[in-house]
Amino acid sequence: MGNNGKPTVGIFGFTGCAGCQLNILNLEDHLLDIISLVDITSWVMAKAENDDGPWDVAFVEGSIAKSTDIERLKKIREKSGVLVAIGACATHGGLPALRNLADTDEWKKEVYGDDYERIDAIDIKPVSHYVKVDYSLPGCPMDKAEFVEAVKALLIGKTPYIPQYSVCGECKAKENVCLLKEGKFCMGPVVQAGCDALCPTYGAACEGCRGPAPEANWAAEVEILKKIGATSEDVKRKFLKYCPSVADMEEFKELEF
């Protein structure tokens, strides 16, 4: 609790586009309500003065891309009661982690020239790889409504509601035309719901930014995509694009593409 009796909150960014933090700023309708309930004591993106914790709740955005980030992340964890990972980078590595698929020294040399060894770059990992994450708000970017829901839930002391099924369920409830049936490589059948099927609702195939749904039947999805013409490479890229950390999961390693 802060001096004013309100829970203290810190919002932190690591490697990513900062779009999730921007999404918090963009909560125009709710931001004043949130600020009246919590004391945001650290948020470099939005505040001139920031303190050094401790925080009742830390929201952490971004993936962990350099070794110095690991220490910073661990400090935040130590000083926080609850840690919430926000956005695909923090929850699953996100787009930045696509660099894991290339040879580190090679791209470093290409981007930074002869001096490349000075660059601190490690294989990109999600926040949960290094510290305990209490709740995850996945997605690229994190869903604003889910963020508000998490804030409310944490304030009143209940578990933030995260649907335990895949996007198809939500997508059908919205009565969208199935994009798979139109030949589009959609990840809806295996990706964590909660986005209200935003992309398919606008005719864009699900890219899987929210990571695998619990018990996702990936083998079935491989079959589904191949049946409509995807190559093994297409399928693999779909699975890993936003969530490269998936490659570390046993279920993924066992998959035949």
Binding site: S166, V167, C168, G169, V190, E215, N217, A220
Partner: peptide, 13 residues
Amino acid sequence: AEDCVNCGACAMV
């Protein structure tokens, strides 16, 4: 059930 992704689409419709 091997092919079922438990997405619930069948139940929704």
